[in-house]
């Protein structure tokens, strides 16, 4: 496998005239990476801003939620499911008129942000909803019995307690959006995925392909590492485990003082 990759890389040195010279590859891929990062960052800001409230609303419209409403719950849930069920390419193509209405264009980064945000919101809504489901129901009862308003309950008993799980989901979501950005690249949004497809795939330019693969793997790995670190920072008992030995945050056991 690696041998064949290597041989194609060597073979690529004597290449057709439209191939990108090796020395120019960094100038091609790094701006593309920046495009991807900009695109995914904008999308993730929108996804979090909409997905967290939406996830909390869907969760609390469900039976035993804070504002239970079966009709509204199934309507919203259906809309989210539709957003989840379309393959991204189809979703992107089918909402072109809407995209043009919002951004005034159907090419480039602004045009990619709209379908990516829609797909990302649907994804993240489910992740938030699922994370909230993991919070023990007693905590909501505690908050209500302590005189909390609904907004206070959602903030303290639900979202705050589910935070590590939500961050974990956000990591998965961000990585999925990096993947979607490659598809969005085909409508002229640019980005690393676009470079991989047009240069590496369509022109058989193997060095470019290899460079984009390395960069994508490194990017995704960094996002995952950052996400894991954030989850740990948000979880008190995981924090303990990391710091054990270094500091002493653990409670000394004192059986006499139960």
């Amino acid at each position: 496998m690696s041998a064949s990759l290597l041989s194609s890389a060597v073979g690529a040195i004597i290449r057709s005239s439209n191939a990108v010279p090796i020395a120019e590859i960094p100038a091609l891929v790094f701006p593309a990476l920046l495009d991807t990062l900009v695109m995914v960052s904008i999308v993730m800001v929108i996804v979090v801003a909409v997905g967290i409230p939406l996830g909390a609303i869907v969760h609390n419209l469900a039976p035993d939620g804070l504002f239970e409403n079966p009709a509204l719950h199934s309507t919203l849930s259906w809309i989210v499911s539709i957003g989840r069920s379309l393959p991204f390419l189809i979703l992107m193509a089918s909402i072109v008129p809407f995209t043009r209405f919002i951004t005034g264009t159907n090419i480039g980064i602004p045009a990619a942000v709209v379908p990516m945000s829609i797909a990302g919101i649907a994804f993240f809504t489910r992740i938030v909803e699922n994370s909230l489901r993991g919070v023990p129901p007693t905590l909501v009862r505690v908050a209500r019995a302590s005189g909390a308003s609904r907004l206070q309950i959602i903030r303290t008993a639900q979202l705050s307690e589910a935070l590590p799980s939500i961050i974990g989901g956000l990591t998965i979501n961000t990585i999925a959006m990096i993947e979607y950005s490659a598809i969005a690249g085909t409508i002229g949004a640019g980005g690393i995925g676009y470079v991989a497809v047009t240069y590496g795939y369509q022109r058989f330019d193997h060095p470019v392909m290899i460079a984009t693969i390395i960069i994508l793997v490194a990017t995704v790995a960094s996002v995952q590492l950052a996400g894991d670190a954030l989850v740990r920072a948000a979880t008190p008992h995981a924090r303990d485990r990391t710091a054990r030995g270094a500091r002493m945050p653990r409670a000394p056991r004192q059986l006499s003082n139960v």
């Binding site: 007693t138 505690v142 209500r144 019995a145 005189g147 008993a157 979880t235």
Partner: peptide, 18 residues
């Protein structure tokens, strides 16, 4: 408001973990 006049002790797993 009225709930605040009654204190409730739940089972021991009712603390906010964070």
């Amino acid at each position: 408001v009225a709930r605040r006049r009654i204190g409730t002790i739940f089972q021991s797993d009712s603390l906010y973990s964070r």
